[in-house]
Amino acid sequence: MNRWLWHGVYAAVLLVVGWAIYKASERVDYTWRWQRIPQYIVSTEGDEIRAPYDGFVALAGDGKSLTLNELNGSRSETFTQFDTALSGDGDLVFQNDVLARKSGLRAGPLTVGLWVTLEISALALMLALILGLIAGLGRVSHNPAARHLATTYVEVIRGTPLLVQIFIFYFFIGTVLQLSAFAAGVAALAVFTGAYVAEIIRAGIEAVPRGQMEAARSLGLGRAQAMRFVVLPQALKKSLPPLAGQSISLIKDSSLVSVMALTDLTKAGREVVSSTFSPFEVWFTVAAMYLLLTGGLSIFVRRLEKRMAHE
């Protein structure tokens, strides 16, 4: 009986917050246009086939295949994957003119941005795990050089804002190494997250009871062998929940790459806002899409922690 009362309180609070947002928007004379959002998530316009170069169009008799013959050259290309031809037989078309349309569902800009965010996050995470493992091992190493290098890396990265690091990667390192915006973004996120992963792994290693290392060494295993077979497996297992939590942070941190010429979900959101002039709806939608990504991971983390608590 009591439980339902509190569930009701929860629902009531949410309703009040929603109402407050609505009332606040009325105050600034905001017109809500939710109906304009879906097309930016999933577009029903379909794909357009554009001319790669100037040329003449030759349409087959059955209308199912279209050939473009280059105007001042010998290149030619045939297209068959379309539903409606938008140019006629014998037409002169210029580069980027629409030749035909393929109808069907296509990902809207927000979904494309979501995909880019996912790509960047996944790649950065993989690199960060490798970097973090090496740095974490360096942090506990007996070798002074390894230990100092790892500590410097961790302290510097954890002590500076991610945005500043992204700028350094984009403008300095990216230019020097001629990296694409995508590569620079992934690199910056990987280096940033790697420092946190290093600390998580270090904590995991130090959480393994000393007796484990002592028993392993007593049996004659070298320090590296003891690490590899006895300590690290246990440390990594302990590190899984915080590592999963760090990947959730990574997805959110990735929104900062929008300051570079990278169209991730946040940048896509900005572009849709400038097309629709509906910032409220767009940003709530973008937030919901991020929630979709992080929410899934959160559930996974909670289940993982529950399972490990039982062991």
Binding site: P209, G211, Q212, E214, A215, A216, S218, L219, G220, V230
Partner: peptide, 15 residues
């Protein structure tokens, strides 16, 4: 160390 075997108070088996 391989010639000297040690048994600990806390067993220290690898879990």
């Amino acid at each position: 160390r391989a010639r000297v075997g040690m048994v600990f108070q806390q067993f220290n088996l690898f879990p």
